[in-house]
Design a protein around this nucleic acid. Structure first.
Lengths: 185, 185
DNA sequence: ATGACCTATATGACTTGACATATATAGGAT
DNA sequence: ATCCTATATATGTCAAGTCATATAGGTCAT
């Protein structure tokens, strides 16, 4: 499970409540990791159980109390070990390719519509990532330290894949158009 | 759930047993969709329950009996509707990016090692996809029909993303090397 | 004071998937 | 005889994730 280590990672930066974590996930790694609120709380409970994190109840005025979580030594060790390990990548499932694989049953215009939708969708992702990237670069200015550059690199990764997807789909659209015209002529 | 529709897709080509399906999955869509054997059988049972497929017990000599599954009209309708729908893509989780995001805690050489491992891993994927691609092209010869071209396109998609990943990681490796040298000089 | 919204945590129910293991038939090897 | 492999289906168990919903404190606007 990686969510566990993601949480340890954030807690290595500063203490967070579960509520904080949900927002931090969405705002920083949301483009490649979606974390469910319920899952965050349950994982925090498990990590506390295992002695990876400590829980610190904080009373607040004007707001409900919050449970701050901070890394224990054991948690730090676990995190660093996970970080330093080169994990095998398991092939991720791609529903769109599945759909395309069987799309031979459809009419060519319908397939083109699917691909065009895919391009449009991916261009939106690209735009979002571009914004995130410029924000990161602006915030950092000239002095970008290693952690910042790695965070930016995750955005560049998303951009690289988005562009690859768009180029691939666009090319396939061209191929399909070419054939249709050739068959019609 | 997409496994359901993948199974319907294969059964739209010809009848299959659960055992067949497992092999067919591995051999044709394995590069972007891993299907668990137990999951296949349970999904077949559910699809039969829902009237999407019919089960046909076949007695065999020299081998155990097998249950052939074939699409019903309802299954065909469900498949075609799924195929023709432009589904929203949910962001897939990328454990490697998570790792990189927090890798600022590591020493630069360790980060470089992670990236080099990533490149090597992805180059293996690329090689495998190249083989699959050439096999498909060889089998088809000059006359590639639409379904064949779409199957090939899923391989090209994988290749495009593999190359994007390699290029991104290589570039990042260069950046990291540049900084280390600059800091050392 | 009622409703809308934000902060904050928690639980129940369910789905999907992963992994191990069981069962049975039969061929071929040692 | 025994073991290994292939064919074929099935079940148990657990982990991970999704979605809905509950609870509770508090602010602010109408």
């Amino acid at each position: 499970m990686s969510l566990q280590h993601a949480i340890l990672g954030f807690l290595s930066l500063q203490p967070f409540s579960g509520y904080d974590l949900k927002r931090v996930f969405d705002q920083t790694v949301g483009h490649f990791w979606v974390a469910d609120q319920a899952q965050i709380y349950r994982t925090l409970a498990r990590l506390a159980d295992e002695g990876m994190i400590d829980v610190d109840p904080i009373e607040q005025e004007g707001k409900p109390d919050r449970n701050e979580h901070r890394l224990t030594q054991a948690g730090k060790v676990e995190l660093d070990q996970w970080l330093a390990t080169a994990h095998e990548t398991q092939t991720s499932r791609r529903p769109f390719l599945l759909q395309l694989f069987f799309a031979g049953r459809l009419q060519t215009p319908e397939i083109r519509r699917l691909l065009q939708h895919r391009v449009a969708e991916t261009m939106l992702v690209e735009a979002t990532l571009n914004e995130i990237g410029s924000t990161l670069e602006k915030h950092a200015g000239d002095t970008m330290d290693l952690p910042q550059r790695l965070r930016l690199a995750t955005v560049h990764n998303g951009l690289a894949h988005a562009r690859a997807e768009i180029a691939w789909a666009t090319r396939l659209l061209g191929d399909l158009a070419g054939t249709t015209e050739a068959e019609a002529s």
